[in-house]
Design a protein around this nucleic acid. Structure first.
Lengths: 94, 94
DNA sequence: CAGAATCCCATTGGATACTG
DNA sequence: CAGTATCCAATGGGATTCTG
């Protein structure tokens, strides 16, 4: 469910209740293509992890944020992050 | 680093200091093919997460277990697992 | 038993162009 | 701005065969 090259990175930008527009996420993750950003957002939305709201404006404006359930992922991913960071001290050891 | 369809499942079978032979892992994860099991084990080994020992016997015998660093992943993955389990109570809600 | 080697298909993901 | 559509390359992964 969390597989996909960009999902974790997207989630990190939404933790803490942050609300982000599509273009903000695009800038925040320069390496991702439009297609992939959309695709991964759609999947996260379908899995009930992120929420999406479209404003009927011109120019269009769409916002993304984490659902409560999505927010509840934070501690687990944070633990993963800390584990990954502890790798720095032993990079190349493997 | 943990991507790959079988890595997490492999890790779960090695947590707690369990030592497993190749064939034991194969039986423990019936859906995995030989090729993938080898490949994912090799990657985990290269990343310093699992260790491998070959016994110079006939028939051959190879054992796998988690390195200390690999073991340190347990709390983080456990947190993820608990998050995933809490999904059961809301299946289909998304 | 524990792999290596090969073939093949499905999915992922990137680049580009187009749209309301 | 926030997508959609299309084409293309790379990767992931399964089935099968072979080996010491």
């Amino acid at each position: 469910m969390l597989e996909g090259r960009w999902k974790l990175e997207i989630l990190f930008h939404l933790f803490g209740g942050q609300v982000r527009r599509f273009s903000e996420l695009e800038r925040a993750i320069p390496a991702v293509s439009q297609k992939m950003l959309i695709q991964q957002l759609r999947q996260l939305e379908q899995d009930g992890i992120v929420a999406r709201r479209v404003y009927p404006e011109v120019p269009p404006r769409v916002e993304y944020w984490l659902t409560d359930w999505g927010q509840s992922l934070c501690p687990a991913l944070d633990a993963l992050l800390q584990w990954a960071e502890r790798r720095e001290g032993r990079a190349g050891a493997g």
